[in-house]
Structures are given as structure tokens and as C-alpha cells.
Nucleic acid binder design. Structure first.
Lengths: 334, 334
DNA sequence: TTGAAAGCGCTACCAC
DNA sequence: GTGGTAGCGCTTTCAA
């Protein structure tokens, strides 16, 4: 008679078994200092015997705190996101929060649906590269603690990977190596990261008097990278900066398929540094701090949930990581 | 006076604004066929104006259904899991379920904690490559709908990637190409997948009279693969089958570092087919159906939640995918 | 130090 | 068709 239908013991069961009221049983967990120590111990022991664990939903209903957070990403299969999610997970674990994961498939409408479905059962959101319009994000952030990653909306808490510096370093390197015409392989235009990188390339190239072609690849994928090689070469470029490592990796493969050699025939630079040295040749790339941005976002979110006032804008500097996919332009290519 | 503290409209607000009772307002959403059509429409319109969305926690408390599921993985950064998680996400989206993600960091104790924290707020679990003892998984599965991926516990619903067939095909291929000594680069011994693959290699090798060395790499990582190359060569093997693609990828890099060529100097075969043709040379591997296993697990879980009796054991056949990392053994290597 | 009782927001049973 | 009401399991005043 102490256990309910399916083995789940409830607080009432514990209270009954311990011969105390629900209030006392509840306090044995939440405010033990208010209860006679011997009782605290006894109640907890009995609870353990009954296999009791508090029901988070019921608790949330009465406290208003869910002990859950949500992280929303456009594509968990894109290698930029798993380390980010992992960092969020590990921080959440420390704070004893459970985490919802939402994959929007790069779609603003799915993002909207996910956010709505989750809003009532979380204490906060981490939106990684959100595709929602500024206004909607602002509204959300007003209602529930929200931290953005790679989306720059003034007034909303956000952590930004500053690739601009790295992009400038990349352009300078290419110039120093004799390149005079380069290509930028653009990602999703809705993405803040792409806008930032694109702008940085355009400015750096203009500043240096470098010829620049921008190729729109849309969704960043290995295939897109591999398939753009032909048109990229046609632009007369001798080097490319890709929106991300995935595209750059595809480009590497495209050249291999053509029997051309990177970096001897062409130099390629990625972005994010999520493939590290796992490509061949090892990719020169702009480090993006996938994990670091996740960790920073979680810290900010935790502070927000605790009612503190963390820094609104956190920048993570991205720098060029020099590996093997870049070299001096070939003489005869001039 | 219709809106509560922070903008969250409640069902009571909607009811009041519409001049109906909470019951009617509730039914306008859950059982509209019981309500006069014009009222349904009016109530819904008013709800929308008020920005009302049902609170899933409260609903769960009274219905016992949470509309949430959880997927637990050992390491979301391991490329086998993102496609799996993505498949689960997309199926869940169709069923209008929200999904919790748990990353156990390959640790049974963290898995325990996660499962306990989540149990009360989900309708079911997908446990991918769980590290928990059989008994604990059985108990869990008795209490809440649970589907395992790559863990074979009789009596519990599970989807298994049958790599054994692929492993045999791999061994046969290597024999046909003249290899007489091979290595198996083993993964986490607690993992069912490793046990299955290891057994299959051992048996196939014994059956064929092939010399076999097993190297214990523990946690499957790129680094582990790269660093084992030396000792692997020392075994006298001319080909290796790796526990997974990540290790195999590392091995490829290890050879490149040594200035040795794959497949000319050594053949390597991976497992899972999650890197597809993105390695260089393109990896010959045993397809693992990462996404397929996620999709199958979700289908089973959905059926379970709906009180149906789906197949308890789903096998996904893994087959050898022939790419470029395997060739005939070198003559002088004999 | 402890207990009774009032909700949190929603659904479902039972009347009208 | 619609409304009243009793919970779901927990926390939290308010009294005792």
C-alpha cells in the first residue's frame, strides 16, 4: 500500500511510510536544516528504500523552475555543433540540469516550432546559429533567459566567434605567398557567421587589392565543396577561403578527384577548426572555438538563470591555424 | 487582467476571455469534435491573440504523458552518433515529441544519473550503445518504454547493427588480395559493438587460417588510431580492420606521417561508414547504418509508447563498402 | 520543528 | 455541448 501503480514511489508514499506529513518529507530534501536531523536521515533512508525520486514536472509546476535547458542547433550532423553541444552538456551536468536538443534542419519555421514546444519546460535557451528573425529572438529573450551563439543581436546575450581577425590573417598570408586572386566559398546567407566572414574577406581583399570571387554554396556540405571546384578554378583564383571546414574538406576531395594537388596547385583555407588535422593534407583553417563557444554560452545562461547580469556580448577570438593546405602560388600559374 | 505576471497566458485566461469554462477551453484543443464549431474557432482565435500555449508540464502531470523522449549517447562528438541523433530528432518532430539529449562521456555512472534525472519527464528512452549493466537496463525497460541501439539484451527492445556479415566479407576480401596476417584495432571492450566485431574477426580469421593480432585501443579516437600504427606494423600485419571509422581515419594519418602509402603499403578497413568518402584515400568500410539505426529505434519506441508490440529485435545488416584504402598485399612484403 | 491546506495549469470524470 | 470539480505530485505560506 505504500507504492503506486507502476513502482514509482511518490512523496506521499514516503511521508506515509515515515509517519510524517508530506510537508516534512518534502523539506527533508529541499530544506533539511528546518527538520530534526534524525528525521531527515530517516526520511531519506526510507525514500531510498522505496526508490523515490522527486517528479521534476510536479516540482516545476509549483516552483516555476524546471531544471531543464534547451540547446537548438541548425544541424547536429555538421561537425561544428557536436563539440558545442558536448560542452553545453557537460556544463549542464555540473549544474544538474537536463538538456533538450533541437535540430532545426536549417529551417526558421522548425526552429519556431521547437522553441514554442520547449519554452514552457525549460529555464533557458542556447540558440546556436539561430535562423529566426531578430524580432522573434528578442521577444523570446525577454520572456526566458536566452543566449545566442554566432548571432549578433544587440540587447540579447550572445557569444560570438570573431572570425574577422582570422580572416584578415588568412588574406595576409595568401598575399605574402603571392596569391593575387582568391575565392570565398560562401555558406548560408541567413547565417551571421557567413555574413561576418564574407564581409571580412571582402574588406580584406579590397584593402589589399586582391581579386575576389564569391561562390554561393548555400547549405555547407562536403558535396557542395567538392562540386564547386570546377567553377572555382574557372574564376582564375589560386586560393580559396571556405565558409567552413566541411566545405574546405570537400574542396580538398574535389582537387584529389581532378588529380590536382593541394597545396601545390591550389591553396585552401577552412574555418572553424573542427576537422583539425584529420584531413589530407591537414587543413589550414581559422579556429572557431566550437566547444569554447558552447561552454561560454552555458556559463552566461547559468548566470542569467540565477538572476545575475553577465556580460551581454562575449567574443571568442578566432585565429589562423597554419597547417598544410596552403603554399606559395605556382610560378607558371601567374 | 487577462494576462498573468510575465506574459504567459494560461488556460484560465483564455476561458475567461472567451466567456467559457476551463473545460470547454481545454476541449477546444484536445477534443474539438465535442464543442460547437463556432466556439472552437472563437476560443482558438482568442488563445492565439493571448499568445497562449499549453504548458506541457501541467498537461503531463494530469495525463501522465509528457510528449518528451530522451536519447542517450556515450559521446555526441563521435561521428557515429550525430546522424543517429538527427534521425531520432526528425522522427520525433513528426510525432510532435521533444527530445532530451544525454551525453554520458562513455561513463556508466553518468548514464545512471542521466537516466534517473530524465525518467520522470519522458515517455521513453533510446539508449545508444549504453554502458549500464544488463540488470539496470532491464529494470528501466520494465518501467518505461526503452529501445537499445547496439546492445543485445534479450527481452529488451533493441536495434542491432549486424557488422558480423560485413566483417566476414572484409576478411574474405583481404584473403583474396593475398593478406596473411591482419590486425584488429579494438574499441571499448564494454561496448557490444566491439564485442560483436571482435568475435566476428576472430572467428573469420581462425576459419581462414589468417594470423590475427588484436590491439586494444580503448576509447575510439583519431589519435589512438594514429598512434597505434607503429605497433601495428610490428605485428607483421599487412592489413587492419578497425573498430570504427574514426580509428581507421587515424591510422590513415599515421601512415601518411610515416611516409608510407595506403593502400600500397598497407590496407585499412573501417567500420560504420560515417566518414564516407571524406578520407584520403577513401576508406573501405563496413556500413553501419548510424541514421538507419536511429530511425528504426524511434519507430520501435513510438510503437511501444502507443502500447503496441513491435518486433523486439531489429537487425540492420552491415555490408562492406569497397573504396580505396584496400589493395593486394605487396609482393616484397611477403 | 511540524502539519494543513492552498495552489501551479491542465485534463477528465460526472452532471446538467 | 458545456460547466463544475477533483486530482496529478510537489512546494510553500501560515498556523500550531
Amino acid at each position: 500500500m505504500t507504492s503506486k501503480r507502476n513502482g514509482r514511489a511518490t512523496l506521499a508514499d514516503v511521508a506515509a511510510a515515515a509517519g510524517v506529513s508530506k510537508s516534512t518529507a518534502s523539506r527533508a530534501f529541499s530544506r533539511p536544516e528546518l527538520i530534526r536531523p534524525e528525521n531527515v536521515e530517516r526520511i531519506r533512508r526510507i525514500a531510498a528504500e522505496l526508490g523515490y525520486t522527486a517528479d521534476p514536472r510536479a516540482r516545476a509546476l509549483s516552483t516555476g523552475r524546471t531544471a531543464n535547458i534547451a540547446v537548438i542547433v541548425p544541424d547536429i550532423a555538421n561537425p561544428f555543433f557536436p563539440p558545442l553541444v558536448r560542452a553545453v552538456e557537460s556544463g549542464a551536468e555540473r549544474a544538474e540540469l537536463a538538456v533538450f536538443l533541437g535540430d532545426t534542419d536549417e529551417s526558421a519555421s522548425r526552429e519556431r516550432v521547437l522553441v514554442d514546444r520547449l519554452e514552457k519546460q525549460v529555464d533557458g535557451f542556447v540558440l546556436a546559429s539561430p535562423r529566426l528573425p531578430d524580432a522573434q529572438i528578442r521577444e523570446l529573450a525577454e520572456r526566458v533567459p536566452t543566449v545566442l551563439i554566432n548571432r549578433d543581436i544587440p540587447g540579447v546575450h550572445r557569444v560570438l566567434v570573431d572570425a574577422a581577425t582570422g580572416v584578415r590573417e588568412a588574406v595576409e598570408l595568401l598575399i605574402a605567398l603571392g596569391h593575387r586572386a582568391i575565392a570565398y566559398l560562401a555558406g548560408p546567407p541567413e547565417s551571421w557567421a557567413d555574413q561576418q566572414r564574407r564581409d571580412a574577406v571582402v574588406q580584406a581583399a579590397a584593402h589589399a587589392g586582391l581579386a575576389l570571387s564569391v561562390l554561393e554554396l548555400g547549405r555547407p556540405s562536403y558535396e557542395a565543396g567538392r562540386e564547386c571546384v570546377g567553377s572555382m578554378i574557372a574564376t582564375g583564383a589560386t586560393a580559396a577561403i571556405a565558409f567552413d571546414d566541411v566545405i574546405a574538406h570537400g574542396v580538398l576531395a574535389g582537387f584529389a578527384t581532378l588529380g590536382r594537388e593541394v597545396p601545390a596547385d591550389f591553396s585552401v583555407i577552412g574555418c572553424d577548426d573542427v576537422l583539425a588535422a584529420t584531413t589530407f593534407p591537414a587543413l589550414t583553417t581559422i579556429s572557431g572555438g566550437s566547444a569554447a563557444s558552447g561552454a561560454a554560452a552555458l556559463d552566461t545562461l547559468l548566470a542569467l538563470i540565477d538572476g545575475e547580469h553577465p556580460e551581454q556580448r562575449t567574443a571568442i577570438a578566432g585565429h589562423l591555424v597554419h597547417r598544410a593546405s596552403v603554399s606559395a602560388v605556382r610560378q607558371h600559374a601567374r
